[in-house]
Design a protein around this nucleic acid. Sequence first.
DNA 1: GCTTATGTACCGATCGTTCGGTTCAATACA
DNA 2: TGTATTGAACCGAACGATCGGTACATAAGC
Lengths: 216, 216
Amino acid sequence: MVPLSPKRVSEKRFDFPGQLRKGAPMSAAARPSHSRDEIVRKLFDLFRHRGFEGAALSDISEATGLGRSSLYHHFPGGKDEMVSAVADFAHSQIEANILAPLAGDTPLAERVDAMLQTTSEMYDCGREPCLVASLMVSPGLAPESAGKVQAILKDWIAALAAALEGAGIPAAEAKRRATAAIIDIQGALLVARASADTGVFTGAMETARRNLLAPA
Amino acid sequence: MVPLSPKRVSEKRFDFPGQLRKGAPMSAAARPSHSRDEIVRKLFDLFRHRGFEGAALSDISEATGLGRSSLYHHFPGGKDEMVSAVADFAHSQIEANILAPLAGDTPLAERVDAMLQTTSEMYDCGREPCLVASLMVSPGLAPESAGKVQAILKDWIAALAAALEGAGIPAAEAKRRATAAIIDIQGALLVARASADTGVFTGAMETARRNLLAPA
DNA sequence: GCTTATGTACCGATCGTTCGGTTCAATACA
DNA sequence: TGTATTGAACCGAACGATCGGTACATAAGC
């Protein structure tokens, strides 16, 4: 069994925010100069770990190093706007790092491998929770944000199905395989964290690859 | 596509609480006399839909029909004790309705089918969220309760693996298949709700059955 | 000076929890 | 039998803390 705890060894090649740094005093001399993008990345981390109602404004303030007024300067709409921005960020990140490479013209296996590799990094082999899964629980989410969150998964499935279809797999079967792969990833994330075993996640990724690339 | 919204048609044969009934006036003449079991079932419903921090005491009071102090009469430990009781309830329900039948001596296929059927009812074909998934997000969960929640999934996998092993499948392969089946179920729950399509769930259940019963 | 950014202080609402008190059936005692 | 006594179940009011959000004055950067 590969325990979850020994933290990330591999360097991340993509720019998904990582796990919450606990202490991280944030030296005052270090020129805050908070760009909206930096803030959103930290919010992404917070919301994926704590969900919507679990992330209090005081937590957000602490995590970003910004006071309440600064937060409301950047996000006049309050928490709703923050989580909406985070959903947009996550969607664009997945779009750019995971879905766009799927649309290339290299062999399908290469593109699928790239997707699974980036996915694995995004979730740190199952150590990091999925924003979509965390936000799907939140009853207080604004409908607009809830729609955005659901759209992430739907787009992922659609892009994956399109790639398979482009490689000659019939539309219905492509959709079936794509859905199964996303199910595999999401289920593995939950089970890996529940059993504190990254092996569960990596194993599921191999299964997903095998099913996606199976002969017609 | 099979939309999520048209509510449950099939009658439930087992005693998993269903979805939240909205109005439910609770006639005052009907001698409440809430048994602890009745209360816990309603709490189960609430926590699986709203998560831990998403279920406020006012929600709990409304859902159970009990005043705040009555709730503290039954659960002196407050919300922590409530969610702990709900975890115990869910574990015992799964144990009795899903895991115990797995240990019978009928053909494996029959037992697996029974498990999948009961599972399907528990989640109402993907319309109802999983308590485990909902509570895994909650940062405020007492460690004891978090452990109980994780144990539910682990026990499920272990029981399923044991059944497969008892049917002649090598231990390692049995564990692999059992884990994959739970991953499938949990992933399907998320994806089905995100795409509002129960077909995703039922399709995943068929996949799980096929993989579990595949020839060695 | 004007805009952007931030800190301090504060708001009403709601959080989980506790308190004082009522109802009512069962029990003990006369 | 009639009458205290008990204790479980229940309630709404109110607690201190924290929630999300606002107002305003002060800087910093152009």
